[in-house]
Design a protein around this nucleic acid. Structure first.
Ligand code: MN
Ligand code: MN
Ligand code: ZN
Ligand code: ZN
Lengths: 138, 138
DNA sequence: TTATATAATTGTAATCATTACAGATTACAA
DNA sequence: TTGTAATCTGTAATGATTACAATTATATAA
């Protein structure tokens, strides 16, 4: 999958983020790999192409992207923080066997809730756990 | 709030967990403090009453309780694991101002989802973030 | 262009939550 | 009472994230 650097640059500029080489590369990685990668996965993969890249830069950049709502964070498991370039409303399913995280559609906006009168809701997350179809076949 | 040790003991025995002094005390704490405490909070509070209690025992006991479905884990934020004695289906709201975690009712079982055909779903979690009513008043 | 200031990146050290592990204590049955 | 297994404790190890200072890149003014 090939991306136009211009698009990535524009996306960063539109959020007032200076489009440095590293930031563009990390944004490109997230765009090409919608697998909810961890920091370590991003680092290991990008390190092959950019041997000078620092893990600190990935942390800094992801926190910057988070502030700008360019990515969202997925915390299903307490020990593995994952990042998702898709900030639209959708749920996440984690397979307890293979560990993979799947997207699914869910009408999160219209969930009927009780007990949150005069609460301001900024963010909604829906996480499922179980066994994926692939793991059941095997 | 006073508890009958017998009830706590029975609860542990029913899950095949030997009701040691520490386990009963931790279960009692969780029952009396439905505030979704962290390990550190449990430790600091119980430490006053039981100076010999080890933090490792709290970790071990909570993991034991988790296995037995006596508690559930709440991972809204990646850096703070919290525990909930209430394992019935309900959602959690974290106030981004005061940090408190509120329970709310939600019809999680009947959320309409798409994209999970032949997936086995074992667990469903719903997390909201925002500003609580108390913090808006202040 | 060159000098200077500012911002971004890097590498290492510090922090903090959790787990591993080995020794001490307790429970319990013979 | 004695011996064995389970539990608990304290400390060390691990691993993810952040703090920080030095280096490098970028922008601006002379
Ligand atoms: Mn996703
Ligand atoms: Mn709760
Ligand atoms: Zn699977
Ligand atoms: Zn609040």
């Amino acid at each position: 999958m090939k991306h136009h650097i211009e698009n990535l640059t524009e996306k960063l500029l539109s959020r007032n983020i200076k489009p440095s080489y590293q930031r563009i590369k990390i944004l490109e990685y997230l765009t090409d790999n919608c697998t909810h990668p961890t920091v370590d996965k991003i680092f290991c993969d990008l390190h092959k192409e950019i041997p000078t890249l620092s893990k600190t830069t990935i942390y800094n950049t992801l926190n910057l992207f988070l502030e700008a709502n360019l990515v969202r964070v997925i915390t299903i498991e307490d020990n593995e923080t994952r990042y998702d370039i898709d900030t639209t409303n959708h749920g996440h399913f984690k397979c307890q066997n293979c560990g993979e995280i799947y997207d699914f559609e869910a009408d999160i906006e219209n969930i009927k809730v009780d007990g949150l009168n005069n609460f301001i809701i900024n963010d909604k997350s829906l996480y499922f756990k179980g066994i994926c179809g692939k793991c059941q076949s095997a």
